[in-house]
Simulated assay, not measured.
Amino acid sequence: MSDLIFDEELPKDPFDLFSSWYSSRRRVGGRRGAGAVLVTMGGRDRPLVHCVRVVPLPDGFAFFLHHRSSIGLALAIDPAVSLAFDWSEQSRVVVVEGRCDRVSAVEADAYYGRLPKREQLAVWAGGMEREGVARDEIAHSVAQFADRFAGQLIPRPTYWGGYRVIVSEMCFRQASGDGVLDILRYRNAGYDKTWDVRRESA
C-alpha cells in the first residue's frame, strides 16, 4: 500500500508528482514508456477507447502512431483526449485531461530512431494495413521492408508520428489502508504554468 501524501509535501507542479509516481512504477514494472488507456471522441456520439504506450515529458505526455489509424483520424477531428494510468498494484491511478498537438518531424525522427529495428519495420508494414488483411500478409510486408532497408538506417515514414498532450487537468488517486481514496486534483490556472490543487476524498 502506498504512503499518503500530506499537504505540506504536495508538489506545486503535477508533473513533479507524476515523475515520482512513474519512477516508483518503473522500479516495479520496468517498462519502456508507460502503458495507458487513451480516450478520444473524433466527432462521434460515443467515446473511442485505445491502449497506447505513452512517453512522459517534463511538461506533458506524448504517444506515437500512424496518422491514418483510427486514433489519428479521431484526433484530426477533435484533439481533446483523456489518458488513464492504472497502477493498481500500487493502489494508484492517474487521469489526465487535455488536447493533442502533433510533435515536430525532428521529435518524431528522434523517437523513431530509438525504436528497435523490428518495431521500425512494423511501423512501415502497419502503414500498409487494409481492412480484413491477414496477419500473414502483414508479416510478409515486414519481411519485404527488411529486404528493402537491408544494410541501411530505416527512415521514418511520413504517415507515422507523434502527438503531444497539452494537459489542462491531472487527477491523482491513491487508496489507503483504511479504505479511503485520497484524490489530488490539479487544474491549469491558465497563466505562467501555475496550477490550482485541491484535495478530495472518496
Rank of each mutant, 00 (worst) to 15 (best):
T40G: 00
T40A: 03
M41Y: 01
M41W: 10
M41Q: 07
M41D: 04
M41R: 10
G42I: 14
G42E: 09
G43Y: 05
G43T: 04
G43Q: 11
R44T: 13
R44I: 04
R44N: 08
R44E: 10
R44V: 05
D45A: 06
D45F: 09
D45S: 13
R46T: 09
R46F: 13
R46A: 10
R46S: 09
R46K: 05
P47V: 11
P47S: 08
P47K: 06
L48V: 12
V49L: 11
V49C: 09
V49A: 10
H50E: 08
H50F: 02
C51K: 03
C51W: 05
V52F: 05
V52D: 01
R53T: 01
R53D: 08
R53K: 02
V54K: 05
V54I: 09
V55F: 02
V55N: 07
P56S: 04
P56G: 00
P56H: 00
L57I: 01
L57C: 03
L57M: 10
L57D: 09
P58E: 03
P58V: 00
P58G: 02
D59E: 08
D59W: 01
G60R: 07
F61R: 04
F61E: 04
F61Y: 07
A62Q: 00
A62T: 06
A62C: 08
F63H: 08
F63V: 00
F64D: 06
F64R: 05
H67L: 11
H67E: 11
R68F: 10
R68W: 04
R68I: 14
S69Y: 09
S70A: 15
S70R: 12
S70L: 15
S70W: 00
S70E: 15
S70H: 11
I71C: 13
I71F: 03
G72N: 04
G72I: 03
G72W: 07
G72C: 12
L73S: 13
L73M: 15
L73I: 13
L73H: 06
L73W: 02
L73C: 14
A74I: 13
A74M: 12
A74T: 07
L75S: 12
L75C: 11
L75R: 00
A76I: 10
A76E: 12
A76C: 15
I77P: 07
I77Y: 15
D78E: 14
D78T: 14
D78L: 12
D78W: 11
P79V: 07
P79E: 01
A80E: 13
A80C: 13
V81C: 10
V81Y: 02
S82Q: 13
S82G: 15
S82P: 08
S82C: 15
L83D: 12
F85M: 11
F85Q: 08
F85V: 04
D86V: 15
D86Q: 12
W87G: 04
W87K: 09
W87R: 01
W87E: 00
S88K: 11
S88D: 13
S88F: 15
E89G: 12
E89I: 13
Q90A: 15
Q90M: 15
Q90G: 13
Q90K: 14
S91H: 10
R92G: 01
R92Q: 10
R92W: 03
V93F: 04
V93P: 05
V93I: 14
V94T: 02
V94N: 01
V94E: 01
V94R: 07
V95R: 02
V95S: 11
V96Q: 06
V96A: 00
V96L: 02
E97R: 08
E97H: 08
E97W: 12
G98Y: 01
G98Q: 08
R99W: 03
R99V: 05
